[in-house]
Design a protein around this nucleic acid. Structure first.
Lengths: 230, 230
DNA sequence: ACAAAAGTGTTTACTATACACCCATGG
DNA sequence: CCATGGGTGTATAGTAAACACTTTTGT
């Protein structure tokens, strides 16, 4: 920051926090959306989000918006990217700090009292979204797939206890490809990030009950990438 | 974005763009800094940056600030992270969209006329910076090292034509470790991202002249990571 | 006893690493 | 002819991928 110091209030863009909340439901990757009640884009689905408060960090603002607007709390959250194209909001200059969040299928979302509609939408049949929110979702999906491959954020898509088949299915749904069961289990167990519980899940219909695991706290979350250079 | 619509001007934070420009010089990784002329932190070194203009994207604002403030242009630039802790600027709420840039040692920086000091600083002996800029630099360094391992951004630290030893040295300086010459050359040549030129660089003192290479435009920039899961 | 899902090892191909000597040039 | 940096190949270890049958449970 240099000689040109803090600008006149009139020149300031507005700044919002928007959230892309992913969850695996009904055998599909879903995003949580809210329906807009006012112009512009009235009636269209949009990402939850809003303005920060004066004494709140961006992360805190994201968490608060999530809770207030959708009832979702205690989920994995990370900053995604800041979008600031000049005409992305027809009302004027609005810069949006986008976050992405991962919620287990057991997490419930509900409108906070008012008449705002909140709903999960499958990514395979996403409606046209308000503003540039479609672009933000695409970017978030790319980041999710990418991180799934070399970090352990994937566990954030599951409840505390889960079976290895449930974990594998979540991965397959997000990555959009089938994985080999034996290799998957070997890798994930060898990584030493799971703790076996003594409990089992009865399969709905029939079949052998599956052992439940939980994700170890303090587990390493990043796996070394295959380096381009030695 | 929901019922709470665009807020009063008074509630709006100011928003700046700050730049972390890395360059390998004098056998060290350097960052380009400017000395502050005004309070707060008058006399301290800070990241170049400033406010965006109404009809300018964030990327454009970053590029313009870089050119205007330091004379640096046509370098690799990418958005890093947005910093928005409530008290990071003592004058009031300022949210900063940080960018990181890579410049070859042949790129010159110079103050734009005025009496602003602009200088490269080695990361091994960085002065205490203004605001939270020290934290921003640390975060940028982490990102640079990370990307160096699994993308080809490293080439942005070198001029158009370079020798393999120069390339290897740049990697060694950024990563802070020695690399094996034969393995390095094999990997980088096998990756098919370099084109051999017919020219050679005379080594300063003595020794056999080294072949010059250039980075292929359109080369793949990402290398597949070693996946945690099969 | 059968249907349904859980669980388990081995072989083969590929990729990464470690390592030492000859080559071209200028003084 | 020597000092300096450039350039090159191979053997070994480790990691990834492909692949099919047995076990446990409920009906």
């Amino acid at each position: 920051m240099t000689p040109s110091e803090i600008p006149l209030l009139l020149d300031r863009p507005a700044i919002t926090v928007d959230l892309v909340i992913f969850s695996v439901r009904d055998h599909d990757l879903n995003v949580l959306l809210v329906r807009r009640l006012e112009a512009p884009f009235r009636g269209r689905w949009a990402l939850p989000g809003g303005f920060g408060q004066p004494n709140e960090s961006l992360d805190d603002a994201a968490r608060r918006q999530l809770q207030e607007e959708t009832g979702v709390h205690d989920v994995y959250l990370e900053q995604l990217y800041t979008f600031g194209a000049p005409r992305r909001d027809p009302r004027g200059r609005v810069i949006s700090v986008a976050y992405f969040a991962l919620a287990a299928a057991t997490v419930n979302a509900q409108a906070n009292g008012g008449d705002v509609e909140v709903a999960w939408h499958s990514l395979t049949r996403l409606p046209e979204l308000a503003f540039d929110h479609g672009e933000i979702v695409r970017y978030a999906l790319q980041r999710l797939r990418y991180k799934l491959e070399y970090t352990s954020v994937g566990f954030e898509l599951l409840p505390n206890e889960f079976t290895l088949t449930e974990l594998q299915t979540a991965y397959e749904i997000v990555l959009g490809e089938k994985l080999d069961k034996r290799n998957f289990r070997r890798r994930i167990l060898d990584a030493g990030i799971l703790a076996e519980t003594s409990r089992y899940r009865e399969s709905d219909g029939q079949g052998r009950p599956a052992r439940l695991y939980r994700y170890k706290e303090n587990a390493v979350t990043e796996v070394k990438a295959r380096r381009l250079f030695p």
